[in-house]
Design a protein around this nucleic acid. Structure first.
Length: 559
RNA sequence: GCGAGAGUAGUGUAGUGGUUAUCACCGGGCGUUGCCAACGCCUGAACCCGGGUUCGAGUCCCGGCUCUCGCACCA
């Protein structure tokens, strides 16, 4: 990152940041109290920009027709994130020295006493720590406080006092969508594929937030969890991207220019749905005004991917900080649902009906409950499983080892088990393909790409070329001068814009007309309307385009 | 987290211990001009926070917070 950033880029970045603060896009949060690292306010202009980007994102995915929107809590019980692997992956287990109060990592203290302390659970670490009582590296004292998970996640307590139970602020929105799987499955009438999207806040207690909006402690994310049947080969329509080859940086093939259709056909992209979502991502980024020449997709190398993932592509956008990953599109296999299934014992599966019912022949042994029950008592269940797995040729009595106990199974304990079972389908854990968007990073690059510095008669002039889809203010209405009724007419037009839902209009009557255009250009207002003398006579106004500066006269009624 | 540098109106800045903290842009009001940051007058707005040294601190010292850069960390 930051490669090749010249002095001009650096001063441009300074001026851009100054403007963003001055005009109310992005500001350091809680600044009057000294500020807080990694936390930003979206200001009077930025707040609207953010929510419009969110809305475009949601609508973009809802267009697929089999996607619903969820909203899950940001406060998440410990068990959920333990099941998902975040507690293990994201934490360091810390303990404080009773002598000098210096905090140490428990796994580091126990190195040399265990082959791989990093892999131990919290309880196991605590047990080992109590046993070993290693000396404090700072003061040699051997008194250690109970281990706590010092986490890249924000700890909290759900509920007050003794009854409170531990939890975290969520590090991603995804887990709530996985835990909502049963409700999604029912909503979609038990038919794959389907997906859920969620836009919301995520939290990571980053050790060192840097580079403005690029690494935050509280961030806006937007994720899609798309559930598929791994055995179904889906056909996706790639036609819409056949004319736009993408820049792909593939794991083993280096940088390529090719269409998604080709990349999927050649197996460079390992799953068609991943490819389809890459296309959807590219289209979305264009919708919100990202320069498509500065988008590329980079494939994770094998050792970079989470162990359960089978393919992962990042959409990277080039801006003032170099190439920054803004979207991750990961094929997560069945990892997430399986993890929650294991932790809860709940079924998180889908049903796949066979084309033809399958007859399963069972020809073997099972126990005779009447005799085996009294004989094996509490072991009877385990003996049943063991006997049923024996081949038909087995002769009784037979010696078996069940749960570590040797038992003798007599002929009288068993009976022949011969039957046909008709199976019409099977249950499986759906696979998940997850496009995860860092909204703040995208928003930053939207701003970065939209920001243009011009020079007009030696003066710096700033235009934000924000897309109409996301511009925080849709229109400005100016009276050429606030007299002879021009101010009143302009206010009336402004009022009519405000009445139409979703339109943001600003009225500005102060300063010269050129100054007002300049103020509007700086926050990226696409259109400005000016009421002049002629308006009073014929009911027309001038409509000025931000990017070209051209004006045309239009009837007030046609606005 | 470690090391280095920095923090003065909304923005960019001047100010090496001594009056009422400089300048520009900026915001507001009035007037004037009458379609692209025009002009005049009036006006608004700052020494990051907390301690210390000193008769006196924006300035020196210590601690904290924030920013920038390097190292470390980083689905």
């Amino acid at each position: 990152m930051g490669e090749g950033m010249g002095e001009n880029d650096a001063t441009r970045l300074d001026r851009l940041n100054g403007m963003l603060k001055r005009r109310g896009f992005l500001l350091p949060a809680f600044e009057i109290h000294g500020g807080a690292k990694g936390l930003y306010d979206f200001g009077p202009v930025g707040g609207r920009l953010r929510s419009r980007i969110n809305q475009v994102w949601i609508n973009h995915w809802l267009q697929m027709g089999n996607i619903v929107e969820l909203s899950c809590p940001t406060i998440t019980p410990y068990a959920v994130l333990e099941a998902s692997g975040h507690v293990g992956e994201f934490s360091d287990f810390m303990t404080d020295c009773g002598g000098c109060e210096e905090g140490s990592r428990a796994d580091t203290l126990l190195e040399g006493h265990h082959p791989n302390p990093d892999a131990l659970s919290k309880d196991e670490l605590q047990e080992l720590l109590n046993l070993i009582k290693p000396p404090c590296p700072a003061c040699n004292e051997c008194q250690w406080s109970p281990i706590s998970a010092q986490n890249l996640m924000f700890n909290t307590t759900i509920g007050a006092g003794q009854s409170g139970r531990p939890g975290f602020l969520r590090p991603e929105t995804a887990q709530g969508m996985f835990t909502s799987y049963p409700s999604l499955y029912r909503h979609f009438r038990e038919r794959l594929p389907f997906g859920a999207v969620q836009v919301g806040k995520g939290y990571r207690n980053e050790i060192s937030p840097r580079q403005g909006m690029i690494r935050l402690r509280e961030f806006n994310m937007a994720e899609l969890e798309y559930f598929i049947d791994p055995e179904v080969n889906v056909e996706h329509d790639f036609q819409q991207w056949d004319d736009t080859p993408l820049t792909l940086v593939a794991d083993e093939n280096g940088e390529l220019e090719m269409t998604l259709r080709e990349a999927v056909a050649q197996g460079i992209i390992r799953h068609a749905t991943v490819g389809y979502f890459m296309g959807m991502t590219h289209t979305f980024l264009q919708k919100v005004g990202i320069d498509s020449k500065r988008i590329r997709f980079r494939q994770h190398e094998h050792d970079e991917m989470a162990h359960y993932a089978t393919d992962c592509w990042d959409a990277e956008i080039e801006g003032s900080y170099g190439w920054v990953e803004c979207v991750g599109i990961a094929h997560r296999g069945c990892y997430d649902l399986e993890s929650h299934e294991k932790a809860t014992g709940r079924t998180l599966r889908a049903r796949r009906e066979f084309d033809e019912p399958r007859m399963v022949e069972i020809d073997g042994w099972t126990i005779n409950g009447a005799t085996a029950g009294p004989a094996f008592k509490q072991l009877a269940g385990a003996v049943k499983n063991a006997v049923e797995s024996l081949p038909k040729e087995t002769n009784f009595p037979a010696q078996l080892n069940v749960n570590g106990t040797d038992v003798t199974v007599e002929e009288e304990h068993v009976k022949v088990n011969q039957k046909s079972i008709k199976e019409t389908g099977e249950w499986f854990i759906p696979h998940v393909i997850e496009p995860a968007f860092g909204i703040d990073r995208i928003l930053w690059h939207v701003i970065d790409h939209a920001y243009e510095e011009q020079e007009r008669e030696g003066e710096a002039y700033t235009i934000m070329h924000l897309s109409k889809n996301i511009a925080p203010v849709d229109v400005c209405v100016f009276p050429l001068f606030e007299k002879e009724g021009m101010g009143e007419l302009a206010k009336e037009i402004h009022g009519n814009f405000l009445k139409s839902t979703g339109t943001v209009s600003m009225y500005d009557g102060s300063g010269s007309i050129g100054r007002r255009y300049a103020r509007a250009d700086e926050i990226g207002v696409p259109s400005c309307i000016t009421v002049d003398h002629q308006s009073l006579q014929d009911g027309t106004v001038t409509l000025r385009d931000r990017d070209t500066g051209e004006q045309k006269r239009v009837n007030i009624a046609d606005l």
